[in-house]
Nucleic acid binder design. Structure first.
Ligand code: NAD
Ligand code: NAD
Lengths: 211, 211
DNA sequence: AAAAAGTCGTGAAATAATTCACGAACGAGT
DNA sequence: ACTCGTTCGTGAATTATTTCACGACTTTTT
């Protein structure tokens, strides 16, 4: 279960590899080289080979990788067979978009339940997911361990504390707040305003640069 | 203009620093230490000092940093005085959320124009931004250089090519497609499905880990 | 006025990640 | 069966980033 041999940079690329291999599989391709993968995913081919090599020798020299074998391997590694339920907190602009989309393509994660504080949203269903009042969080969250946080920034820390109280161990945080959590809880921040500004900064200050 | 002395990792944190300093300024705080910044932004204090030091000696030993001075400095560095117009392509779930939000808080970026291929969306205004038909892209995009791409994955590459034809130099790409661009165009991928899966992977395989 | 406490800026060390480059192995063609 | 071209896996080099740790200087306290 503990797998600290895999560099974090590699771990972040695994879902990308998985999705791309799945697409190749659907297209009926049975063989692929690190060079082809590199062109398609914009990751250096040596990096791809190095990443794969942490899991052992998955390819054949002079041939490349067998798509089905590799896909099966990553399916197990990423636990794609067991589903991971997710809770969404804050059914506003972003939350609604996520509910409608719901990450179901090539994916083992699914939003199972949503919460909002606004009575006019409670009781509705969006993308087949029912919206509960956030006061009933504890009653409906069950043992879900993953939460997507799309509440106003002022609610971010209080809601985080409550989620952790309910047993949540991972939060995908879209608010600009840098939330504080115990160190057995993992938070990934996706700060869209920062991403946009940072793109602009790079455009102005790193002309002709490579990605 | 060219500023290749600044490490990329540092550059990515600059907008975060700017926003946080702006909040301190609004709160009327006039002094801050790297330690306080570290607690609030969850970035190691030595990293913060190192980041700042690329721009010169901005602080005072034994005192910390003057909030207004630092803020003014970052405002210039991040060109916060000049506005950067942005085009949004694809007014679906995500695109609508972005239009409603529109990045206007503490921010010099603003979506000025939106495009969609669906006639039922064209002509409407969302968050005060008018939606044009994508066929009229060239007529309405003007000299906007930054685009947010929220179209279906199959449209990602064709739309990218067309945007570049129109002079776009930076794309914030929310589609799962790894788009191909000339090397004077910068692309930042935000792959939400990958982010969610990667969070789950880290939760399962790196227990008790630090962020 | 002197001592104590605080904090920056940074050289150097440590850690992390990427990239080069090549030997070994394999497949395909003749 | 042999040769040629391909592609992996990886040691070593390189590059990037973070972190330690301390001297220098400022502010605060007594
Ligand atoms: N929409 C964007 O494009 C965008 C971009 C960058 C950052 N963000 C950030 O993402 C977050 C959500 O943005 P949004 O545009 O969806 O906001 P929004 O205001 O549209 O949605 C927030 C929702 O949370 C609900 N809510 C409020 N308090 C709550 C609570 N205690 N518990 C549960 N629900 C609660 C509100 O009723 C509302 O439905 C914000 O923090 C925002 O800063 C959004
Ligand atoms: N919504 C999410 O939560 C989510 C999560 C992960 C990834 N994504 C990705 O983001 C992208 C957008 O997602 P969405 O949920 O907003 O999709 P969507 O289908 O709701 O929106 C896509 C919009 O693009 C428009 N469109 C189609 N072709 C176009 C063209 N050529 N030019 C301009 N507009 C065009 C459609 O009319 C539609 O309004 C997709 O690629 C999706 O895979 C979305």
């Amino acid at each position: 279960m503990v797998n600290n041999k895999i560099p974090q940079a590699t771990a972040k690329r695994l879902p990308l590899y998985y999705r791309f291999l799945n697409n190749l599989h659907i297209q009926g391709k049975d063989r692929v080289s690190s060079k082809e993968l590199s062109n398609a995913m914009k990751v250096d081919s040596a990096t791809i080979r190095r990443d794969f090599s942490y899991f052992g020798a998955l390819g054949k020299k002079g041939y490349g990788y067998n798509v089905d074998y590799l896909l099966g391997f990553f399916r197990k590694t990423l636990d794609q067979d067991e589903n991971t339920p997710v809770a969404l907190i804050g059914v506003g602009n972003l939350g609604t978009a996520f509910l409608n989309y719901n990450f179901t393509k090539n994916n083992n994660t699914k939003i199972e339940v949503a919460f909002d504080a606004d009575p006019s949203k409670v009781g509705k269903s969006i993308g087949k997911i029912e919206v509960h009042h956030v006061d009933d969080l504890e009653a409906h969250i069950g043992d879900i361990q993953v939460a997507i946080l799309t509440v106003p920034v002022s609610e971010a820390q209080p809601m985080t504390d409550r989620l952790i109280q309910s047993g949540v161990k991972g939060i995908l945080n879209f608010t600009p707040a840098r939330i504080t959590v115990p160190n057995d809880v993992r938070v990934h921040h996706i700060d869209l305003a920062v991403e946009l500004q940072s793109l602009v900064y790079f455009m102005k200050h790193y002309p002709l640069d490579v990605e």
